[in-house]
């Protein structure tokens, strides 16, 4: 076991770590920084999420589109009294930049880190960029865990003074290919030092149960906190698009049909026949159903042995988080 900071038994002492360690079913959210330098955007979103999540992920140039940095936005989130989980990808930084940015992030009060490979830059708004991928996500997990536990930089050089003590997490996509390897790869992340895992969006509960059985068989659910990814569907079109285009995202047809069914009163009409009010009413019906489905998914996920919490991804729809958490009976959030 790594040395205990201040003898309190926590690796980082973050709120997320405490909530999980005390055995509460954790709730994390997601906050997407804007494509500009406006800190107010972060403050507004933080207000919507505060009190409803134990911590929120700050995405790092999500889908390879330039946005306010996760650490910059994270500093604002800290000021707002909400706890950030800094996302960091391997795409844009080499090991020097990663370490120095993390020293800075810690000094600014950030305590959780999620290590990711990162979407390839060809998806984003700078497809002609050079990528880095000096480390992969597993090597990043190992590097930051060792900085915390042994006070050494990646090069092996020891450093003096305050070490960055992060609660280190990684992502897992249970249904990405090769699917048989996913639980084993999760094992590698745990071995590298990951304390928590946030999964890709889960809609297919049966498939996720199968994954979790394998994870339990490997003894991993005792070594790492697994937070299942959930998110409200916005419309049947969006659901179909995600199902067809996002690797490892499985959405059962029955859920898409449920979404379509609530839009039935407006179905059969062409775009031009629908008035503004019609469209608004239809959107509202879809969103209500999307939130309802999300709540049901959380309830089913809670029943699965070895799941320690949920990670709610409602990017650009932060308003949905409160009704979801509330509807799932997860409010108020524990104070630890």
């Amino acid at each position: 076991m790594p040395p205990e900071p201040n003898g309190n038994g926590y690796l980082s002492g973050s709120n997320l770590e405490k909530v999980l360690k005390h055995g509460h079913f954790a709730v994390t959210g997601e906050l997407g920084p804007p494509q500009n330098a406006d800190g107010e955007v972060i403050r507004k979103k933080a207000k919507l999420l505060k009190g409803n999540c134990d911590a929120v992920n700050l995405t790092d140039n999500q889908t390879a589109i330039v946005r306010m940095s996760s650490i910059g936005a994270g500093a604002i989130v800290v000021q707002e009294g909400l706890e950030p989980i800094i996302q960091m990808t391997c795409r844009d930084r080499n090991r020097l930049a990663m370490q120095s940015d993390l020293l800075g992030a810690y000094a600014l009060g950030m305590r959780n880190l999620l290590c990711l490979s990162g979407d390839h830059q060809t998806f984003g708004n700078h497809p002609t960029a050079k990528n880095v991928f000096d480390l992969d996500s597993i090597q990043m997990v190992q590097m930051v865990s060792l900085m915390r536990d042994t006070k050494v930089f990646q090069c092996g050089e020891a450093f003096k003074g305050q070490e960055p003590r992060f609660f280190v997490g990684a992502a897992e996509s249970p249904f990405a290919n090769p699917i048989e390897f996913r639980p084993l790869r999760l094992g590698k992340k745990v071995k590298a030092g990951a304390s928590f895992i946030q999964t890709q969006l889960i809609y297919d509960i049966e498939a996720f149960k199968t994954f979790m059985t394998k994870v339990r068989e490997l003894g991993l659910s005792e070594k790492v906190y697994i937070l299942a990814g959930v998110g409200p569907l916005k419309s049947p079109t969006m659901a179909r698009y995600m199902k067809d285009n996002v690797p490892g995202l499985w959405i059962p047809d029955q859920l898409i049909e449920r979404m379509a069914a609530v839009g039935a009163p407006w179905a059969g009409k062409s775009k031009d026949e629908l008035t503004k009010e019609d469209k608004k009413a239809r959107s509202a019906a879809w969103q209500t159903e999307g939130i309802k489905i999300c709540i049901e998914l959380i309830q089913q996920i809670r029943e699965i042995e070895g799941v320690a919490g949920v990670h709610i991804m409602a990017i650009e729809w932060e308003e949905a988080v409160k009704p979801i958490v509330e509807g799932a009976g997860l409010l108020p959030r524990p104070i630890v």
């Binding site: 795409r91 490979s117 979407d119 991928f133 992969d136 996500s137 992502a171 897992e172 990405a176 590698k188």
Partner: peptide, 21 residues
């Protein structure tokens, strides 16, 4: 590997092909 990963596939691997295309 489009990301030169050393510890296994990223989450973008689908039906045998890479996430980039």
């Amino acid at each position: 590997c489009s990301k030169s990963l050393l510890n296994g596939p990223c989450g973008g691997s689908e039906n045998g092909h890479c996430e980039i295309n």
